[in-house]
C-alpha cells in the first residue's frame, strides 16, 4: 500500500512503471465512491491533483488542446467562448462540489455511457493523447472507448490531453434526467454546426454502451439546411430527431427504460438542432 503524489507527468509515469497495478487518481468522484462502497481495495495510488501541466489548455488556430486534469469548473470558466457545448455539458455535471473535483481526463478514462462530455467529444471526433514512459500515442475517442467503462488505455499509460478541432458555428448540449442539477444523464445529445464545411455533427450519450454518432441524422439535416441563413424546415428537424433515435441503442436499467431513452434522445437532439438554427421554416 503505497502512494505517489507526482508534480509532473514524467514523475507520474515513472511512478506508474514502479507499481504497474496502481490506480491513477484524478478527481476521485468515481474511484473514491467505489472504495467507499468496498468495491475496490487499492494497493497503490498515483494522485494526479498536483500535476499542474495536466491542467494546461491551448487554443490554437485549428485545434483546442485541453489538459486531462481540467476540472468541470475550469471548463465552464475557460471554455465557454471557444467550446460552448463543452462548457454547457460541464455545467450540467453534479454540483459545484463535484465540478470542482471531476476532470475531463477522468470522464474520458472512466468511459461511463453517461459521461456528460463524451457526446460532444464524439461529435467533434476528439483525439485523446495517451502517454507512457515509453511512448506518446494519439487515439481517436471512438477507438479509445470500446464498451461500458472499457477503454484501450494500456498498462503504464495515462490520458494527458484531449484535442478537438476548432469549429466555427453554433453548438449545443442537452441532457435529460430526473432533476436539472446533480443528475446522471438518462439521455444526452450534442449538436455542432460547422458553418465552414456546411455540415452538422451530432453525438448521443447514455443511449448505448459507447457515445454514438447519429450519422444519418447528420447527413440528412446537413442537406436540408439552407446555409445562406442557417434555417431548416420543421419536417427536417422532426426527421433529425427520429434518425437520432434510430441511431440510439439504449437499454432499460434502474435509471430509465429503453423506450423512454429513445423518445427522449429524439426530443433533445431535435431541440439542440433547433437552437443551433437561426429559424425554422
Amino acid at each position: 500500500m503505497r502512494v505517489a503524489r507526482p508534480r509532473t507527468i514524467s514523475e507520474a509515469l515513472s511512478a506508474l512503471d514502479d507499481n504497474p497495478g496502481s490506480q491513477l487518481l484524478a478527481g476521485g468522484t468515481d474511484f473514491c465512491v467505489e472504495v467507499n462502497y468496498g468495491h475496490r481495495r487499492p494497493e497503490g495510488v498515483v494522485c494526479l491533483r498536483r500535476v499542474a501541466e495536466l491542467r494546461d489548455f491551448e487554443v490554437g488556430e485549428g485545434k483546442v488542446r485541453i489538459g486531462a486534469g481540467t476540472t468541470y469548473t475550469e471548463m465552464v470558466k475557460r471554455l465557454s467562448g471557444v467550446l460552448p457545448a463543452l462548457a454547457a455539458a460541464a455545467r450540467t455535471v453534479g454540483s459545484p462540489q463535484i465540478r470542482n473535483a471531476g476532470t475531463l481526463g477522468g470522464n474520458v478514462a472512466t468511459a461511463s455511457p453517461a459521461g456528460d462530455t463524451l457526446p460532444l467529444l464524439a461529435a467533434l471526433d476528439a483525439e485523446v493523447v495517451l502517454v507512457s514512459s515509453k511512448a506518446r500515442r494519439v487515439v481517436p475517442l471512438n477507438e479509445l472507448i470500446t464498451g461500458v467503462k472499457t477503454t484501450t488505455i494500456g498498462p503504464g499509460e495515462m490520458v494527458a490531453e484531449v484535442v478537438v478541432p476548432r469549429i466555427s458555428g453554433p453548438q449545443h448540449f442537452l441532457k435529460v434526467g430526473t432533476r436539472n442539477a446533480m443528475v446522471i444523464s438518462i439521455a444526452s445529445a450534442a449538436v455542432v454546426v460547422d458553418l465552414q464545411a456546411q455540415v452538422v455533427r451530432c453525438g448521443l450519450g447514455s443511449v448505448g454502451p459507447v457515445p454514438i454518432r447519429a450519422s444519418r441524422a447528420e447527413e440528412m439535416i446537413s442537406e436540408a439546411i439552407d446555409w445562406d441563413d442557417l434555417s431548416a424546415p420543421r419536417a427536417a428537424l422532426e426527421r433529425f430527431g427520429d434518425l437520432a433515435a434510430e441511431a440510439a441503442r439504449p437499454i432499460t436499467d434502474h435509471r430509465s427504460t429503453a423506450d423512454y431513452r429513445k423518445r427522449a434522445v429524439a426530443v433533445i437532439a431535435a431541440r439542440a438542432m433547433r437552437r443551433s438554427l437561426t429559424r425554422v421554416t
Binding site: 514523475e11 511512478a15 502517454v131
Partner: peptide, 13 residues
C-alpha cells in the same frame, strides 16, 4: 515530459 529523465523525488512511491 515523456522524454525527460524521471528521477525519484516528489513523484516517487
Amino acid at each position: 515530459a515523456v522524454s525527460s529523465e524521471a528521477g525519484a523525488g516528489a513523484g516517487a512511491f
